[in-house]
């Protein structure tokens, strides 16, 4: 990958990390606090009020079950929401300097993933200390899964950031869309709780595979293989490739619309 050796890409990522997370103390604290607070609220609502149970997960309590899926989702959704404006926010740069524009959304996604993955690792450690049995060997499976999720997020970020230049509504439509996606992904619940009809529908959502695989690897120690292990990563790569082609086709015309 030429990207990893690209100095401009390094600069953009470190700039994104600094402005978004490290510039002020609250930014950094917020990074951990915000998902932690949401996690606490969801845990309270679902364990105390709704008395949610997880039938298929013997011995795993609700909070780790939720946390393992929730952090990667946060990275995924936040990276897309953040990078939707990556092009329009850098209009001055796009119109004056010739450089590969795709580096802007890609660096935003990378910065978001780097920061949230650090948080994810911390959460896993905390869960272990609180007595949850984390399958550390499962990281060998979880890391490729997260990598494919990163590729998927990068593809969607390229698509939305390019679309946002032409259709200004994208930034408005995206947050409710991500909320909808959040609830149609088995993060707060387990897909095994759904009636069969809906369980097969929800399997069409690629994010279902991601969160379930992470739980399989890290919590349940379930390393069985299925056809989805081939389909979803391939689909993610396809989305990335198609979005990159779309982005490059548009990028010469960004300036006309900014």
């Amino acid at each position: 990958m030429k990207l990893l050796s690209n100095n401009l890409f390094h600069q953009l990522v470190s700039r994104a990390i600094r402005t978004d997370y490290l510039e002020n103390l609250t930014g950094f604290a917020w990074l951990i606090l915000q998902p932690l607070m949401l996690l606490a609220v969801y845990a309270f609502v679902f364990t105390t009020i709704f008395k949610a149970r997880i039938p298929d997960a013997a011995g795993v309590s609700y909070v780790p079950y939720l946390a393992v899926a929730f952090w990667p989702w946060t990275a995924f959704s936040e990276s897309i929401l953040r990078s939707a404006n990556a092009i329009s926010a850098n209009a001055a740069l796009i119109g004056k300097v010739a450089f590969p524009g795709e580096l802007l959304p890609l660096s935003t996604v990378t910065a978001t993933f780097v920061m949230h993955m650090a948080g994810y690792l911390a959460v896993l450690l905390v869960l272990q200390l609180m007595g949850t049995d984390i399958h550390w060997l499962g990281l060998l499976g979880a890391i490729p899964v997260l990598l494919f999720m990163f590729i998927f997020a990068s593809g969607l970020a390229l698509l939305t950031s390019a679309l946002q230049v032409f259709v200004r509504d994208v930034a408005q439509i995206l947050p409710p869309l991500m909320t909808f996606w959040f609830f149609t992904t088995p993060i707060l619940y387990s897909s095994s709780l759904l009636p069969d009809k809906w369980a097969s529908v929800i399997k069409l959502n690629p994010m279902t595979w991601y969160v379930e695989r992470l739980r399989d690897f890290l919590l349940l120690g379930n390393y069985h293989w299925s056809i989805s292990d081939l389909l979803v990563p391939s689909f993610s790569i396809l989305v990335f490739w198609a979005s990159l082609v779309f982005f490059r086709r548009c990028s010469g015309h960004f300036e006309d619309f900014l």
Binding site: I94, G95, K96, V97, A98, G252, H253, E255, D256
Partner: peptide
């Protein structure tokens, strides 16, 4: 100049 530098197509 923008055309020349490749900023616009």
């Amino acid at each position: 100049l923008k055309v020349l530098t490749g900023v616009i197509t």
